[in-house]
Design a protein around this nucleic acid. Structure first.
Length: 879
RNA sequence: GGGAGCAUGGCUCAGUUGGUUAGAGCAUUCGGCUUACAUCCGAAAGGUCAUAGGUUCGAGUCCUAUUGUUCCCACCA
């Protein structure tokens, strides 16, 4: 066993330990009927690029839960994988092509797909490497990709089943179209941006020449496709116009003026131009009024043949030209400044155009209902709970899901069209001939599926569905899904209804939401700001454990967090702290075999330590069980740093350096026992440093990650003895406090006198050596009961009694009096607050007896403190 | 137009089901190279828990309103 270096150097261990874990197969479990399964499926990162800090947070939490459950003895599976991210990846590849001066059409579908697969090889692999750097204990033997054969098979199966049930249909609807990506989008894929624009007031002349009606619009170019003007039926300004027609300028088309409740008369002019093919509201209104629908846009966002003279112009160019033309014709009433929401594509951020198009849809009504029920009933819980409301809100107002995309990279829609008779066949595999006419010229649908269609199946498609595999049987449903709140609609909701529909079971019982990781100023990380943080750079600089620490300690579920270097530094320091504590223990274990804590004479410090350990492990396990990961991490930190290092190790030195052999044996046993427990409690959070240490220790176990999680029930506790140690600690703190306040140099030792309560007098001698060592005193002298306060001393009042430091030559009497006055004021405040509670009859009758009792005790203690302080002040004034 | 979150010492944040004197890290001040660690140790100072009401024996925690701030959803052209 090599020696431990003075400081923990992550670089020296991380890669090597990870390789070791992989070699030994520690991340892999086979279904085991004797164990309970614990399953997490990773939210598959998009292969578009490398992982960002948000992924690091997400995966750290999953790893913590997985490692915890694994140590608890569950049969665990954390299933990793990546997502082909149809549109996002395609956008990236097209960008790359453009730099080579190519378009995707230049390449053709097959060549393009080759590029995409190459992209997957590069970035998919890189993502896996990044996950490994973070210490993720994923089962790499079960690595999946949404375009794997197995998963593609699942996608086809689901498509065909839903089609056969009538839940997938093809139809012509108004959809959101991204002219840049040249594809349809689902409603979820449209984001809205506030944009400063104008409201153009246009005059539409009445066909009978009796004047004109003014319409207001934010998109003047759509007038090319207008097929009506609408007003509110109750709007008196226009009642006499309803039923008349206007002559649409430029197009010279005669279109009706109709009345419809949809029109708000306060807005604009109260008259709306109706463009059914390019506005969802107009579309609905057109259906009510049987209006013509004229599509004026090409797929690339330019004006088509229906736009007459404007054909071929971009929508924006057409807008300018049309406004100019209206002005020339004297038909431009006015232009107002107007700011409104514009829909943009969530991938390329260009304005989307609503248009009518033939697409594939999933009918949502019957799927949504059971998915709502399982959350309402609590079968699926969301942490924090408030996201359940967001979920209901979406699911209850859900619209049919447009799933076809005019893209190449993705799962091609399993529908074929007979070139001879036009018949459409939806099938699991390519049909060789048309079932209707027998023709052999069948052409597959050109479109691919929404990338989220395959992600929706992830919890079961990754486990082998539709085959009935052992994995699927054992690991499904999964336990917890850890994801950011921004994909609740895209993904979480769709997994829930898909799981219910195809597995007849929920996909997971808990959804743990993470917040967004923001930069140190609280800004969202973005490419344009260039404020993104690369987790790998952080790991290179501080180590993976430090990064994980910064992302977890004190963070609460679903809340955004700021990422600050200081916190990573704190994490690095913590790793170094446990490293050095372990180094200390290791140096002091001696040559004899380490005894069990059951076989040694435990002293008060040991009993205190074990009692604290028992409480801490119970609390930490409890926090983890409730997904309070930030709090669990905080407790691990505090317990190890303060309780174990700052107190117990320091106390143990007394016996290690000056104790008898038997005492050394006891101290070593408890140090070793507690250290191992500390490492285990810490391991899910900081796997590398804990494993590195573990392998330096004579534990007899080759890895910490498969060791047993500390079971609080098995740790002995000694409440009463622990209380005595607490009293001694209070004495030590008081002495240190006085010494610091009076600026007594550490080198100056002093004797300590105590007027102790009788019980305390009995046990304090046992603590004398600890007090001596920790407080810098030469010896502890117990004053006889009832003896007067010694002159020329400084004092402090503790639970165990009053202590005196005979340092009158060092003490400024006035300062000391001031200090005592301050303490007295504190005591008086405590007395009055507690007394007033006890004076309250309702409190006495309604509060639990235990609470009342505590208040009584607190009051008594405060009163005693006051008496002692007053006495002390009086004697000091006599000097 | 609906809905949600946040507001706690100088900064960044915790605070489980309401229960003694509201915690931590960083920063600050003071004292320390004490044979695990200066990536450290000891000590201190610093908070009317946004504001105003209410419920309760008891409120940072529950309710109502207000202010500020962030976000989500929504078809006012």
């Amino acid at each position: 066993m090599q020696e431990m270096e003075k400081n923990f150097d992550p670089k020296q261990y991380e890669e090597q330990l990870y390789a070791q874990w992989m070699d030994k197969g520690y991340f892999h479990d086979e279904p085991d009927a004797n164990k309970k399964p614990f399953t997490i499926v990773i939210p598959p990162p998009n292969i578009t690029a490398q992982l960002h800090i948000g992924h690091a947070l997400n995966n750290t939490l999953q790893d913590i839960l997985t490692r915890y459950k694994r140590m608890e003895g569950y049969c665990t599976l954390w299933l990793p994988g990546t997502d082909h991210a149809s549109i996002a990846t395609e956008v990236k590849i097209i960008e790359a092509l453009r730099k080579e001066g190519l378009t995707k059409q230049d390449l053709g579908r097959d060549e393009f797909l080759k590029r995409a697969w190459k992209w997957y090889d590069t970035y998919g692999g890189r993502i896996v490497e990044q996950l490994k750097r973070m210490g993720s204990s994923c089962d790499w033997q079960r690595l999946r990709f949404t375009m794997d054969d197995g998963l593609s098979h699942a996608v086809n199966e689901v498509f065909v089943r839903l089609y056969e049930k009538g839940l997938i249909y093809r139809g012509s609807r108004i959809i959101n179209w991204c002219p840049t990506c040249k594809t349809a989008l689902s409603t979820a894929e449209v984001e809205y941006e506030e944009q400063a624009s104008h409201l153009w007031h246009l005059r539409y002349p009445l066909a009978d020449g009796s004047g004109y009606i003014v319409v207001a619009t934010t998109r003047p170019e759509t007038m090319l496709g207008d097929t009506a003007v609408a007003v509110n039926p109750a709007d008196e300004r226009y009642t006499q116009l309803v039923g008349k027609t206007v002559l649409l300028p430029i197009m010279n088309r005669e279109i009706p003026i109709v009345a419809d409740d949809y029109v708000e008369y306060e807005f604009g002019t109260g008259a709306v131009k109706i463009t059914p093919a390019h506005d969802p509201n107009d579309y609905e209104l057109a259906q009510r009024h049987n209006l013509e629908m004229i599509n004026i846009l090409n797929g690339d966002g330019t004006i088509n043949d229906n736009g007459g003279a404007y054909c071929g112009m971009t929508a924006l160019a057409a807008r300018e030209a049309i406004v100019a033309e209206f002005e020339r014709l004297g038909l431009l009433e006015k232009i107002e400044d107007y700011s409104h929401n514009v829909g943009v594509c969530y991938r390329c951020h260009h304005t989307v155009e609503p248009l009518i198009s033939e697409q594939w849809f999933v009918a949502m009504d019957s799927l949504a209902k059971p998915a709502i029920d399982v959350v309402r009933s609590g079968e699926i819980k969301m942490v924090p709970e408030r996201y359940e409301r967001t979920y209901y809100n979406w699911m209850e107002n859900i619209r049919d899901w447009c799933i076809s995309r005019q893209l190449w990279w993705g799962h091609r829609i399993p529908a074929w069209y007979c070139q001879d008779c036009g018949e459409m066949v939806v099938a699991r595999t390519a049909p060789d001939k048309c079932p209707k006419c027998g023709g052999e010229h069948l052409k597959q649908d050109d479109d691919v599926l929404d990338t989220w269609f395959s992600s929706a199946l992830w919890p079961f498609s990754t486990l082998g569905w539709p085959e009935k595999t052992a994995d699927l049987d054992y690991f499904y449903p999964t336990n917890v899904l850890v994801t950011a709140y921004d994909i609740i609609f895209f993904w979480v909701a769709r997994m829930i209804f898909s799981g219910l529909e195809h597995m007849d079971e929920i996909p997971f019982d808990t959804v743990l939401f993470t917040g967004l990781v923001r930069d140190a100023q609280g800004r969202k990380m973005s490419k344009s700001l260039g404020n993104g943080i690369d987790p790998i750079e952080v790991i290179d600089q501080y180590g993976a454990d430090a990064l994980r620490f910064a992302l977890t300690v004190g963070v609460s579920a679903g809340n955004d967090m700021r990422f600050r270097d200081e916190k990573v530094e704190a994490g690095r320091n913590f790793a170094n702290k446990i490293w050095n504590a372990s180094r200390f223990v290791l140096m002091n274990l001696g040559d004899e075999p380490i005894a069990s804590i059951a076989d040694v004479q435990l002293d008060a410090a040991d009993r205190w330590m074990l009692t604290q350990l028992k409480a801490a492990s119970a609390e930490i396990s409890g926090n983890l069980d409730h997904y309070e990961i930030g709090m669990a991490a905080q407790k691990v930190y505090d317990f190890i740093w303060s309780t174990f290092c700052d107190w117990y190790i320091e106390l143990a030195k007394t016996r290690l350096y000056n104790g008898s052999e038997e005492e050394k044996r006891a101290a070593r046993a408890v140090l070793f026992y507690t250290l191992k427990a500390c490492l285990k409690l810490m391991h899910p959070f900081m796997p590398f440093v804990t494993e590195a240490i573990w392998q330096h220790l004579p534990t007899g176990e080759e890895t910490i990650m498969r060791s047993a999680w500390p079971d609080a029930a098995e740790i002995p506790s000694f409440e009463e003895d622990a209380k005595k140690m607490d009293d001694a600690i209070e004495i030590i703190r008081s002495v240190r406090n006085i010494r610091a306040e009076l600026k007594v140099p550490t080198s100056v030792k002093t004797s300590l006198l105590m007027a102790a309560a009788p019980e305390a007098a009995a046990y304090l001698p046992e603590f004398e050596r600890y007090i001596m060592a920790q407080a810098g005193v030469t010896h502890l002298e117990l004053l006889p009961q009832g003896s007067p306060d010694p002159h020329g001393t400084v004092s402090a009042v503790c639970a165990a009694g009053t202590l005196f430091l005979p340092m009158k030559e060092l003490v400024d009497i006035d300062k000391e009096l001031a200090r005592l006055d301050k303490e007295l004021a504190g005591a008086i405040k405590d007395i009055s607050s507690n007394q007033s509670r006890l004076d309250n009859q309702t409190f006495l009758s309604k509060a639990p007896a235990q609470v009342v009792d505590t208040v009584r005790q607190t009051l008594a203690a405060a009163q005693e403190r006051r008496a002692l302080l007053e006495k002390r002040i009086a004697t000091l004034k006599e000097i």
